[in-house]
């Protein structure tokens, strides 16, 4: 059973990591969580990002949620902001796409072109 005491231990253990994190600019993963996003399956996508980030202990990544991004028909939509780079928008994201986005884009810095909105619009019109 998880206890608050364990949380207290985590607190002590992680204070160093936090100071380190304050010095580096975070990569932001933003998932659209308006009604359109939720109905299209955004919640498991958001959870998959959080799980992947926790599993790989990526302390410079912040997973966040936002409202309607504006292209409801392409939900779930995920935007990734890497410091100093242009935003990349992924569309119709499913949990099984998350591992690749985290590995290739967040960790290695190469956007997964096939999942982007630009690629989708160019191949589905």
């Amino acid at each position: 059973m998880k206890t608050l005491q364990e949380l207290e231990e985590i607190r002590k253990r992680t204070l160093d990591a936090i100071n380190l994190r304050k010095d580096t600019e975070a990569i932001r993963v933003v998932v659209g969580m308006a009604t359109c996003g939720i109905a299209a399956g955004a919640r498991p996508v958001l959870t998959a990002f959080m799980d992947e980030v926790a599993k790989r202990n990526l302390s410079n990544v912040v997973v966040a949620q936002t409202g309607c991004i504006g292209v409801c028909r392409l939900e779930p939509i995920v935007e990734i902001y890497r410091p100093g780079e242009e935003k990349v928008t992924y569309v119709k994201v499913t949990p099984d796409m998350v591992g690749r986005i985290v590995t290739e884009h967040i960790v290695n810095g190469n956007a997964v072109r096939d999942y982007t909105i630009g690629y989708y619009e160019a191949h589905n019109n």
Partner: peptide, 13 residues
């Protein structure tokens, strides 16, 4: 328990 400095979105938390 965590205090003000430890964020919830830390992997371990």
């Amino acid at each position: 328990t965590l205090g003000e400095d430890v964020p919830f979105n830390l992997p371990e938390v």
